[in-house]
Simulated scan of single mutants.
Amino acid sequence: MFVADKYAQPFLGAWQGAGAVPASAAPTVRGRAWCFRSTDVRTAAEPVGTGDPSLPEGDVGDEERGPVEVCSLTWRTDRYGWVSGTPGSKAHGSPTYSVPSLVACVLTEQVPGTDPATVVSVFPGGEGTCATLGLPGYR
């Protein structure tokens, strides 16, 4: 289970479903995803909107996008400084960065004070990454 608190070290436990981890799952939370810097869920992760109209102007916007597409944009613009060490700028003419192969998995998050929920989480990696992490793929 991932603890969704940016100020605490997140952690992952066993998949909350009964029995073996399913090959794929649909998340219960829509409109946002977690972009992870690495396949270690205890490292940097940032929540991103995937089309929530309540997002500020100039962010992802009203058009719904897939979680991998949105996380690719955060890598390409280095929004969180994962590539350069300094968060990127959205200004015209800003440098763009290489985007690693990304894969969408579904993990269980625990927001303090709420019931656990499943949410899309995007990790650097490819086929087999979700299974290696003990997570179902996103469908």
Results as ranks from 00 to 15, higher is better:
residue 59 D to C: 14
residue 11 F to V: 10
residue 47 P to W: 00
residue 99 V to Y: 07
residue 83 V to E: 04
residue 96 T to E: 15
residue 117 A to L: 10
residue 116 P to C: 07
residue 134 G to P: 05
residue 2 F to Y: 12
residue 6 K to H: 10
residue 43 T to V: 05
residue 77 T to D: 14
residue 129 T to P: 00
residue 86 T to Q: 09
residue 126 G to E: 06
residue 51 G to R: 10
residue 119 V to L: 12
residue 103 V to R: 08
residue 75 W to T: 06
residue 53 P to C: 05
residue 14 A to G: 11
residue 96 T to Q: 15
residue 120 V to T: 11
residue 75 W to F: 07
residue 71 C to G: 09
residue 66 G to W: 04
residue 95 P to I: 13
residue 55 L to S: 11
residue 78 D to Y: 06
residue 66 G to H: 05
residue 116 P to S: 06
residue 103 V to L: 08
residue 86 T to A: 11
residue 105 C to I: 02
residue 31 G to Q: 02
residue 121 S to H: 08
residue 100 P to T: 10
residue 11 F to R: 13
residue 31 G to S: 06
residue 59 D to P: 01
residue 93 G to S: 11
residue 28 T to M: 12
residue 32 R to A: 13
residue 71 C to T: 11
residue 4 A to D: 09
residue 65 R to D: 14
residue 109 E to H: 09
residue 48 V to P: 03
residue 17 G to M: 02
residue 18 A to N: 12
residue 128 G to A: 04
residue 11 F to Q: 14
residue 8 A to T: 09
residue 76 R to Q: 13
residue 5 D to Y: 04
residue 61 G to S: 05
residue 45 A to V: 02
residue 137 G to I: 00
residue 96 T to S: 14
residue 12 L to Q: 11
residue 31 G to Y: 01
residue 138 Y to D: 13
residue 95 P to S: 12
residue 111 V to D: 09
residue 69 E to W: 09
residue 11 F to S: 14
residue 108 T to A: 08
residue 71 C to K: 06
residue 106 V to H: 02
residue 138 Y to I: 08
residue 101 S to L: 09
residue 128 G to M: 05
residue 62 D to T: 08
residue 91 A to P: 04
residue 96 T to D: 12
residue 5 D to A: 14
residue 69 E to A: 15
residue 87 P to V: 01
residue 35 C to N: 08
residue 3 V to D: 12
residue 77 T to C: 09
residue 112 P to Y: 01
residue 8 A to F: 01
residue 101 S to N: 13
residue 28 T to Y: 09
residue 21 V to A: 15
residue 87 P to G: 01
residue 78 D to S: 04
residue 23 A to K: 15
residue 123 F to M: 00
residue 61 G to T: 01
residue 108 T to R: 01
residue 133 L to S: 01
residue 121 S to E: 04
residue 130 C to K: 00
residue 15 W to T: 07
residue 72 S to C: 05
residue 10 P to D: 03
residue 30 R to S: 15
residue 4 A to R: 06
residue 56 P to Y: 05
residue 43 T to F: 03
residue 127 E to D: 08
residue 88 G to F: 00
residue 13 G to P: 01
residue 53 P to T: 03
